[in-house]
Amino acid sequence: MALGMEIQNLRAWYGKVKALQDINLTVVPGAVTAIIGPSGCGKSTFIRCLNRLHEVVRGARASGQVWLGDLNIYGRGVDPVLVRRRIGMVFQKPNPFPAMSIFDNVAAGLHLDGVPRQEIYGRVEMALRLAGLWDEVRDRLQVSGANLSGGQQQRLCLARALALEPEVLLLDEPCSALDPASTMHIEAVLRDLKGRYTVVIVTHNMQQASRVADYTAFFLTGEVVEYGSTEDIFTRPRDERTENYITGRFG
C-alpha cells in the first residue's frame, strides 16, 4: 500500500517567477518525511507539486519527473485527477465542506472514486478511527462538519484524505492554525500512520519535525540544501546554512 516517491529535476514557476530549482529527493515508503525551511523557501510549492495541485493556480506550472512507484505523475497523458485520488492532502487551514455532514465530508472522496454504497460506511468509520476522531463524532455523524472545533476539523480533513486509502499523504503545515493540544493529537495520529502510509509533512516548526519525522529535508530559496535522517539533520548538519537555521540564527 505505501509507495515511495522519487522526485527528479523538479522545477516550478509562478508565471515568470521560479519557485523551485531542480529538486531531487527520494521519499521513503512508509516513513514520515518533513520539509522544513523559512517562509518563501518553496516548501509549500514543493508539496503541492507532489499531487499536481500546484498547476491549478493560474499561471503556475512545473516540469521534471515525480515517480509514484513506477508512474511518473508528470508523464504524458497522466490525468492529474486520478493522481490526486492516490495521493491525499491536508491543508494549512482546516477546510471541511460546511454544507456537508461529518459523514459526507469523509465520504466525499469515496463518492468521487465510485466506491460502492455498501462499502462507504465501513470506509468512513475506518478513516475516522485512524484520524482519532471516531469516538468524538460517532453519535453525531449527520451534524455539519463546520460545527467541530478547529482541531477536530483538521482531523476530519485528515480522515477525509485517509478514507481514499492514499498511497501517499501530504500535509501542508497542518498544525499551524491549531493549539498545542490539537497539534499533539495530530502528531500522535501521524506516528500511528508510520509503516502503513508514506507521509510528507511541511512544517515551519522544527520541534514538530524532530518529533514526527524519520527523514527531514531543509529547503532554502527553492532548493534542497540538505536531506537526511531527521537525527542527522538536527544533530550533525553537514551544511552551514542548515546549522544556522536549526539553531535559530535565521528563519
Binding site: 499531487n51 495541485l53 491549478v56 485527477v81 486520478l82 493522481v83 490526486r84 485520488r85 492516490r86 491525499g88 492532502m89 491543508f91 487551514k93 477546510n95 471541511p96 465542506f97 466525499a108 472522496g109 468521487l112 472514486d113 480533513c157 477525509r160 484524505a161 481514499l164
Partner: peptide
C-alpha cells in the same frame, strides 16, 4: 481552500 479541498480528493 474549498476548491482545493475538493480537487485534492480527485475531483
Amino acid at each position: 481552500h474549498q476548491r482545493e479541498a475538493m480537487l485534492a480528493l480527485g475531483a
